[in-house]
Amino acid sequence: MIPTDLYKTLKDNGTISAESFDKLTEKQQSSLFSLHWELKTLLYLGVVLLSGGLGILIYKNIDSIGHQAILAGIAAICGGCFYYCFRHKNPFSRELLKSPGVLFDYVVLLGCLSFLTFTGYLQYQYQIFGTHYGMATFIPMLVLFYVAYEFDHLGVLSMAIANLAVWMGVSVTPSSLLSNANFDNQTLIYTYLLLGLILLLVGFFSERFNFKKHFRFSYLHFGIHISFIALLFAYFNHYDSATAILWLLILFGLGYYLYVDAMRHKSFYFMLLVILYSYVATSILVFRLLDGMSNTDSIYMLCLYFIISAAVLILRIIRLNKQIKAS
């Protein structure tokens, strides 16, 4: 609730100029009501329902309707969407591209989803890629990355990153990463780690070469989660050997670098991720050290460790927040 005479007070004591006062009062009188986010949510839901429904429809009727008919239907939707996008798109730019309309982003999304259905169906029915399963995921991935960069679409970029992970033989969503926990498979862990580091690198390069700088967030988001989780898994995988500590050292080194980077970018989110993952790693280490004592004292020590470390962490985070806000 803003006091009605606030603007007048501000104008009278000279805090704001007469020009700004006019603008402010004019806006207060004309108060337009925006349905922007409501309509966007409806559009998003529409795209999700439609593409999901189409997927099930094809799955259930695969034997009764002709394959050509299905293919033609999906291709028509996909082609229509991309036709619309190319008609309405803004010229390509290395910077952040403002979307030409509210609808545009969702047409891109629908086009990509139906394209994926299309290629998946082609592969299932006609084996166009034969047994080259790598190709079957590689080509959709390329298309997705191209679309993400061409139309400047963060959602499609996330899908492309997910596809990159599929291509490398893993799934990328952090939840499935944890639920499919597989400590025994070393190649899987190394693949995760490689994927995470590649994503981090791409994130840094997008900023360094000023090429779609705002995509950095998505790359770093996936990169940080994947590489830290992979490093922790690698540690547990080598738990009994002497090299185990090496993985945690790599983790701390990576953490320090990302921490400095997050400070430089004033990114609360990445800073918090790095701090929390490093805290987990430290706690694992302390837990292991104290477990070696294996008596009641170690439980007291563990409690003390958590009390002190948590207190230090709280003070540290608060200090950091103030620092970032002040700068």
């Binding site: 997927g55 799955y59 994926l116 169906y121 592969q123 299932y124 079957a136 899908m159």
Partner: peptide, 12 residues
């Protein structure tokens, strides 16, 4: 053909 509609997962 489960995930076929997303991500070309049918092949993977």
């Amino acid at each position: 053909m489960g995930g076929g509609s997303f991500g070309g997962g049918g092949a993977s």
